[in-house]
Nucleic acid binder design. Sequence first.
DNA 1: ATTGCAAATGCGAATCATTCGCAAAAACAA
DNA 2: TTGTTTTTGCGAATGATTCGCATTTGCAAT
Lengths: 158, 158
Amino acid sequence: MGAKSHYNDVLKERNLKATKHRFAILEALENCKIPVTAEDLYIKLKRDGISISLSTVYRCLETLHKKGIVIKSNIPDYNKAVFEYNHNEHRHHMICIKCHKMQPVNGCPLEEFEKFIESKFDFTVKGHNLEVYGYCSGCGSKETASNYSCCPERNEGS
Amino acid sequence: MGAKSHYNDVLKERNLKATKHRFAILEALENCKIPVTAEDLYIKLKRDGISISLSTVYRCLETLHKKGIVIKSNIPDYNKAVFEYNHNEHRHHMICIKCHKMQPVNGCPLEEFEKFIESKFDFTVKGHNLEVYGYCSGCGSKETASNYSCCPERNEGS
DNA sequence: ATTGCAAATGCGAATCATTCGCAAAAACAA
DNA sequence: TTGTTTTTGCGAATGATTCGCATTTGCAAT
């Protein structure tokens, strides 16, 4: 039980029981380059020969998310939540508005902005959410999509 | 029909028919200080004596959003979409993780970051999504919530 | 104005992601 | 091993959103 003991600690620290399903989920997530939906993960686990139910996947992800072990986010105009292992490196993502692929970008330009907000409003900043969207290399930028402030329309006809 | 002609133009420009429902929705949205859910809007319209069905509200919002007239976004850990009129001022929001209230903040610190991304990755930036979350003035910061990188757990028990 | 056609709407049913209830199966402390 | 607390499986329930289709409306051409 070498590598697993790592997850063991992570879980125990937060008063979570160390179950094989949680190990499997954490391991699968940690291996994912990009955030996945609960169902993606479920399928992946099944494919790896792990017997688990979809509701368990949802429940575990939710629990792990609540404990900060997993990050949960939403892709604009995509009505599913996606999850990723929280590497505790602060980073954001680029999301392709065509194929919905998400890829990480390290670094964060927001420290000052948060200070600004706290100084200007009576608001205690606890975090933020930032995604940049556009066209990934595969999808190109041939489309003449208009650039709305939140989520362009898909190219419709034209 | 003085004020309404404005919406008329907005709609016509995008090849949308000018219907009273769309006027009503745009007017209601433009009057909202904060983003609202489709259902909030539906209730508001009903209260104002407008006869409309919930599916029409959804459909209109979606259409208006696709055309860039309305902004659609997601509040983390709140499984509903919220909508607001697109004033075309670029702005973001502070979201209270306790009461889910959202308030706008003008200004945006991301221009450089977007340039950085385009220069570093083969990605064509079309927009972004940024929300800051924490505790609003009403909800205070008394809770000792941990600050995860995306959405703290609610204070559980304690 | 009238006509005709495409787009928009109402209504309820359908869908889809996510959650819940509850009994059975772990985990883990004693 | 035993008892207590969590977790899990399964399927049913939920809740937001979408869809189908018949009806109505907007609006351009007559």
